[in-house]
């Protein structure tokens, strides 16, 4: 058993759990939280998979993902008007 395979399984399992939370909601904030966690896990997935396939140069990509994830997250929170959205979702 390769150690990177273990890491990969761990990260994929966490992704699945975050995905479940994103499905379940119940509020928008839970979904955003899950999406944010998912972003970090993508960074880890790419880092680990780079080592797994013997090409750690993919780290540049992981680095950029970490930045993009943060920028996207802040843009999202600045952009959306959460009051309406939260109540809409509860009405559903």
């Amino acid at each position: 058993m390769n150690v990177f395979v273990v890491g990969m399984i761990g990260v994929l399992t966490t992704m699945l759990l975050a995905l479940t939370r994103a499905f379940m909601g119940p509020t928008v904030f839970d979904r955003v939280l899950a999406a944010n966690m998912f972003g970090t896990k993508t960074v880890l997935l790419i880092a680990v998979s780079g080592f797994l396939t013997g090409r750690p140069e993919w780290l540049d990509l992981a680095l950029l993902y970490a930045l993009m994830n943060f920028i996207g997250m802040i843009a999202l929170l600045r952009f959306s008007k959460f009051q309406n959205l939260a109540s809409d979702e509860q009405a559903k």
Partner: peptide, 19 residues
């Protein structure tokens, strides 16, 4: 091994907590 397995375990624990 300790680091990567430990990290995976903590990730999964966090995921369980999220649920």
């Amino acid at each position: 091994w300790a680091c990567i397995v430990g990290g995976s375990v903590f990730c999964v624990i966090g995921g369980i907590g999220l649920l």
